[in-house]
Amino acid sequence: MRKFELLDGLVVPLDRANVDTDAIIPKQFLKSIKRSGFGPNAFDEWRYLDHGEPGMDNGKRPLNKEFVLNQPRYQGAQILLVRENFGCGSSREHAPWALEDYGFRVIIAPSFADIFFNNCFKNGLLPIRLDADKVDALFKAVEANVGYKLKVDLGLQAITAPDGTVYKFEVDAFRKHCLLNGLDDIGLTLQHVEDIKAFEAKHRAAQPWLFA
């Protein structure tokens, strides 16, 4: 997994609540058996005017110029600013894969759907919860200032705005550790093989039918 420590990144505002995983990556792209290459199809139905299918040359497709990700001032954005309940819907990890492949490293929202939130950490993406009024203030600032960037420091758990405002955020110690060090959590869990085996033996003795 890619490490995350510090980022000084351009922000793009996607002013919608309840953005679901079908919108982040439509199902036709879920047929891939790979983990990479989903970026050009992130937000496919909003980004392009035609219907996208796997295998198309996305560079030749007509763009929806109205959609915020397509506006020249937001090209190269690494921070996605959204409204509440971002990532609701399915458990598809293709959603964080697509966002990461597009170039995002941080998503800021008042709230996230649980499974999506979890999936982000497994893929080097940092989802940050901020109070709705702070998110609202950021929306206003981004829209008012071309080239608006934020500094995100995972170690300090702080976002610094160009005007010097600092927004602190919460993150689980374990997730922070994994993200800061780019650690694969399977390897970490396998350090506890003996614990797992001991638990399994006890569990099997108590409920043998689970192991039939």
Partner: peptide, 15 residues
């Protein structure tokens, strides 16, 4: 429900 990284994690560790 779990994501694909967790599917792999459960396969490998049962946890």
């Amino acid at each position: 429900g779990i994501g694909t990284s967790e599917v792999e994690h459960v396969m490998a560790t049962q946890c």
